[in-house]
């Protein structure tokens, strides 16, 4: 059993928890993920590590409530326990030799973009960040990004906060300046796809962090397969980072929709369950 040390709502749909897992905290590097199960009947879901605190033995993950499992996870308070918490899985983000980079985060993906930006700072790189959200109410981690970034832009689709539009607009402006070694993009698949299209003419190495459906996270199920440069790769052991110019984003978008119907049913079931228990959702 793994104890939840802290819990913080980042916006109405997104929650950050810190879980007690000292060894994972010690070993994890930016870009790696964990798999957790809320309880004995729960499914295994992958979540990218948002941060670690070795001293407190804490591993932070950030999640958005989408289906039954994330809803159940969101019901867990500080001091409560998760039945399973496995990691660190996947390969760390490759930041070697990078001196100047752009980090593009979208929505809840910013949770993963933040440690990547942090890691880049650690190795002495100049970090420019662009983070985007649907509208003001969904903005997360703004202060954290500002503190890390040498240049910072924020967009909202509806213009309710920051610059109106998507991340590609400020991204293009930065790219025009030139001199970047790498672009890291982490967020919705559509955003990563368009980031890749935007960087393509500039010939900058662009890395996308994929989060396909997964079960074991050790290369066993093949569920997380992603087509990269025409070849099937397993995100759990070969990734989760891949060359964004070579990823078949459309295929992954289709694959991620495989269980949408089931997710909706489970969400409803959980809602009813929580109502019965007298907790509000």
């Amino acid at each position: 059993m793994y104890r939840i040390l802290t819990r913080r709502k980042l916006n109405q749909n997104v929650t950050m928890i810190e879980v007690e897992a000292p060894r994972i905290a010690q070993k994890a590097l930016a870009g790696q993920f964990i798999i957790l199960r809320v309880d004995e009947r729960g499914e295994r879901i992958p979540l990218t590590i948002a941060g670690t605190d070795i001293g407190r033995g804490a591993v932070a993950v950030i999640f958005q409530v989408v289906g039954g499992t994330t809803m159940a996870l969101d019901q867990k308070g500080e001091g409560e326990f998760l039945s399973d918490f496995v990691g660190p899985l996947g390969n760390p983000t490759d930041v070697e030799g990078v001196k100047r980079a752009i980090v593009v985060g979208g929505g809840v993906g910013c949770a993963i973009a933040l440690p990547v930006a942090g890691r880049l700072k650690e190795i002495g790189a100049e970090v420019h960040t662009v983070i985007g959200f649907r509208s003001r109410e969904f903005v997360i981690l703004e202060e954290e990004f500002r503190a890390l970034s040498d240049k910072f832009s924020l967009t909202t689709d509806d213009g309710s906060y920051g610059e109106k539009g998507n991340v590609c607009i400020p991204l293009k402006r930065l790219l025009e300046e030139g001199g970047y070694d790498a672009v890291y993009t982490i967020g919705p698949l559509a955003m990563m796809k368009y980031t890749a299209l935007t960087t393509k003419p500039y010939n900058v190495r662009t890395v996308a962090s994929m989060d396909p459906i997964m079960i074991d996270g050790t290369g066993m199920c093949g569920c997380c397969r992603v087509t990269v440069d025409g070849v099937t790769k397993f995100a759990c052991v070969d990734g989760p980072d891949f060359d964004a110019q070579k990823i078949d984003f459309d295929e992954t978008m289709q694959r991620n929709r495989a269980y949408l119907g089931f997710e909706a049913t489970m969400r409803e079931k959980h809602c009813n369950l929580f109502k019965k228990e007298g907790t509000d959702v």
Binding site: R41, G42, E43, R44, G68, T69, A72, I215, D216, M220, C221, G222, C223, R225, T227, T232, E251, Q254, R255, R257, A258, Y259, F262, E263, M266
Partner: peptide, 28 residues
């Protein structure tokens, strides 16, 4: 890599380990 194509490992893991055949399992 189309939807509805699985490795036997995935299919069996969902059903055996995660007990997807049971009514109260959260695994689809």
């Amino acid at each position: 890599n189309a939807k509805g194509v699985f490795s036997a490992n995935e299919y069996l893991t969902r059903v055996n380990l995660m007990k997807a055949y049971e009514e109260d399992s959260e695994t689809p």
